[in-house]
Every structure is written in C-alpha cells, then in structure tokens.
Amino acid sequence: MTLEVRDLAYAYPDGTQALFGVNLSISRGERVALLGPNGAGKTTLVMHLNGILTAGHGSVRVAGLPVEKGNLQEIRRRVGLVFQDPDDQLFLPTVREDVAFGPANLGIRGAELERRVTEALARVGMLEVIDRPPHHLSFGQRRRVAVATVLAMDPEILVLDEPSSNLDPASRRELAEILRSLDVTILMVTHDLPYALELCERSLILSGGTIAADGPTPDLLGNPTLLAAHRLELPYGFAVPQGVPDQAPHAR
C-alpha cells in the first residue's frame, strides 16, 4: 500500500472541523483523483499527507511509514506535493537550482544531483529551460517545472493540487500527456472532472470532510445524482464517453 489514511480527523486551531474520519488507500502505480467541491477539505487532507499538518485523530502511512515528527524528512521525500500556484513552488533564481533544491536537501550532491535534475526536467520535457529564471517561463511551463522539482526527489507518490487550473487547452493537454507518461503513483486533487476522467481510472469524492464515494471514475462521473449531492458538475455539453455505469459506486 503506497498511501494509507485511517480515520483521519482534523480541526483547525480556531475549532473549525475540516475532516471527520477520512479512510482511503492507494496502491502502487495507481492514478487516483480526489474530487470535491470547494471547501470540502481537499487541501487540508493533502497537507496531512506530508506532515505539514499533523493528524488530530487517526493516522497516515506512506509506504508503511507513519507520518510523525521523527520521520518527516523521509515522508517528504516519499510524498511529492505539487502546489497549485507554481510561483509558490518555484522560488530560486534558476530552474536548475530549483529542481536541485529538493534532492540537495536530501543530501545529494555532485554528479548524482546533476543527473537527478536533468532527468526530472527531461521527464516533463523542460530540459531546454534549465538555466532560465522560472518567472520568465509561461504558466504552463512553470507548472511542468513544478512537477519536475518534485520528481527529482524520486517520490513514492505524486500529489497534485488542481494541476489543470489556469492552463490553456494546449498546456492542459500537454500536462496530461506528461502525467500519463510518468511511471509513478499519482493522487490528483481537482474539481476538473473531465481531467480526472482522462487521467485517473479511480476517483474518490471528498465531501463534508469524509470520503463520500470511491470507485472507477466513469462510474462516479456517470452518476448525476451522486455528483449533484456533492456539488460536482460536469461541464456543459460533456458526457462520459461509453462508460455507462453498470453498477452504483460503492458509497460510504
């Protein structure tokens, strides 16, 4: 099991309860979409996966290792978080330094570091911008470099927060192709339902701080009642291709 979340509950310091007992597990090699309306607790859940927030109740395990104070560094290597705004993620003066930041924090230096940087950039097709400053790149390029900064750490699981937001259609498609070509476990947090359908065989719906549904993406998206119950909607004119739901998704 690459990621295992058990009975995770969390309340913010001001008392607002954001998560009410989340259970989910993701196996190696899976691509899973975490769907949910704004305010469902998606970001809060993501912050627990690499220990930026620590569980009020319940547990998170990454490849067997519990997320706890003592092993945060190893957890952060295993869980690669790609933030929604690439300007938050890319903070160093050149792409090269930024991609090197993560592995260098793991103590990697010299030729091995160089190899990790070029390999990660090659995987997202951004090797040619290695010496450019991130703020001179287009938004789509910056998002791809942001993915590379995390890939360079060789993570067990890649967690993407709204990967398709603010991308033009071409960049959106290019990113999809890149994500599909990566040989890593992916958890993609989004409310872009067609993107989830395109990339993820399985989806989870997080609503009201719990997992409301868990099943094959076409089944979930083909169930208008389920979607409506959780403030999710397919874009106008979009229909789930051929995936006629033959069974109701396993609801909790």
Partner: peptide, 21 residues
Amino acid sequence: RGERVHLAMLSRGYTGTMPVI
C-alpha cells in the same frame, strides 16, 4: 504568499538552511 512558499519549501525537505550546490 510568503507562507505558501514556506510550505512548499518544507514539502521539499527544507530545514532552515539552503543547500550550497
């Protein structure tokens, strides 16, 4: 933004010093 950048840095194993590379 500063807070978000800091979170993103922590997520990549930042411990308070910049690695000199």
